[in-house]
Amino acid sequence: MATARAAILLAGFISSAILLMPLQWLGLKFGLSYASTLPNRYHRFLCRMIGIRVTRRGVPHQGSACLIAANHTSWLDIPVIASLEPCSFVAKSEVAGWPFFGTLARLQRTVFVERERRTRTVHSRNEIHARIAAGDRLVLFPEGTSSDGNRVLTFKSALMSVAQLTIVNGDEDREADLVVQPMSVTYVRLHGLPMGRYFRPFFAWYGDMELFPHLWEAFSLGPIEVVVEYHKPVTIREIGNRKALAAYCESCCREGQTRALTGRLAEPAADGAALAAAEGAVRRLAGAGG
């Protein structure tokens, strides 16, 4: 049954994507309005087909330009996050060359960055800023890689420097701070039961795991539940600097993941500790003269 389920879902995933690829390409080429919302509808369909139930906590920031900073566990993060609202992603440049998935990423207007080349950081930052200024909602994975789903890795601050740039508010013709909103993504249940450390690696994609075998395993195991939490949005002016901003987002995601893994979903978001972590980072930098 597991093999049959995996085969059916994999065939459904590939065939549905192939059918929609030309439509999305035409929408992007001719600037048609549906091109920004079609990926969102497709990812909602994909989550239903695979059997992913997404529980959303918190409220996405609205009303001004916003960058989402999320922890990264799996390729499944893409359909999970994109099913909630129209958005695009920031990904490492290698993804652009992946067969099939690279095409999907380009059709969702992914921003590709060369993380290993510091000389390209300013170029990547400016590209991200231009996209956000144009009204796009971008999702950044500041860990720079994916984790095993049981912990949040250290958030890198390089691309957080985009928050130092202001955005022109077209309605009021004035400059406004770019808002950064942390988002935690946690894989919590399999067939209605706590997923645990044994099963989570079947859905977490990290290390040297091959993508297609991992796809097969994930599709074969059955319905899963994911908790996505939107945390308190902030600006770099409120936090102090990009390193403190990265520390705040990391702490928010770590707290959100801990709440989801321990089942304490009824608690209100406790982002005060995350703010304290950011303030601590500012003090450490000041003490070091940085």
Rank of each mutant, 00 (worst) to 15 (best):
D171W: 04
V122C: 06
T258K: 11
D177A: 14
R197M: 05
L261H: 00
G289Q: 03
E229K: 08
T55Q: 07
S88H: 06
V80R: 01
A176W: 01
H123T: 15
E172R: 11
S157Q: 08
I50F: 05
V180Y: 01
F141R: 03
P223D: 03
A91M: 10
C47Q: 02
H191A: 11
A130C: 03
R237L: 12
T103K: 07
S124A: 07
L285T: 02
S93D: 14
G263R: 00
I8N: 06
L20H: 12
S184V: 11
A163P: 12
R117L: 11
I18H: 05
S184G: 10
S161V: 08
L193H: 13
R106K: 13
Q24V: 14
G256S: 02
I78G: 07
A2C: 10
T37V: 13
Q108T: 12
A133W: 03
E94I: 10
P39G: 05
V226G: 03
V152P: 01
L265K: 01
M21T: 13
H129K: 03
T110G: 08
S64Q: 15
E225T: 06
A130Q: 12
V185N: 07
V227N: 05
A286C: 03
I81N: 05
P22V: 04
G256E: 00
L221T: 13
I78V: 14
L165K: 15
L32H: 10
Y34C: 08
F219D: 08
M160C: 10
V111C: 08
L153D: 08
F212L: 15
F112Q: 06
E116Q: 13
G192R: 01
T235I: 14
C252G: 10
E229Y: 00
S184H: 03
A288R: 09
R5L: 08
K29S: 14
R242I: 12
F203C: 06
L285C: 07
C47R: 02
R120E: 13
L215Y: 05
A278V: 01
N71L: 09
T37L: 04
P213A: 04
G287T: 07
G12Q: 03
S251H: 06
A105R: 05
T73A: 13
A2Q: 15
L221F: 02
P22R: 06
L221H: 14
G149Y: 00
V227Y: 00
Q62F: 04
V113G: 04
A96N: 10
Q164S: 15
D271Y: 01
G12E: 09
R120T: 14
G149E: 00
P22H: 02
E225P: 01
D148I: 08
F30E: 02
G222D: 11
M209P: 11
Q62H: 13
A11R: 03
R115Q: 08
A7W: 03
M1V: 15
L10F: 09
W75Q: 10
V234F: 02
G280Y: 00
A246H: 00
A69C: 08
H231K: 04
T258E: 12
C66A: 03
R5K: 11
A218S: 15
W98N: 05
M49W: 09
R44K: 14
C47E: 02
T3H: 12
V111Q: 09
A70L: 11
G102Y: 11
H129V: 04
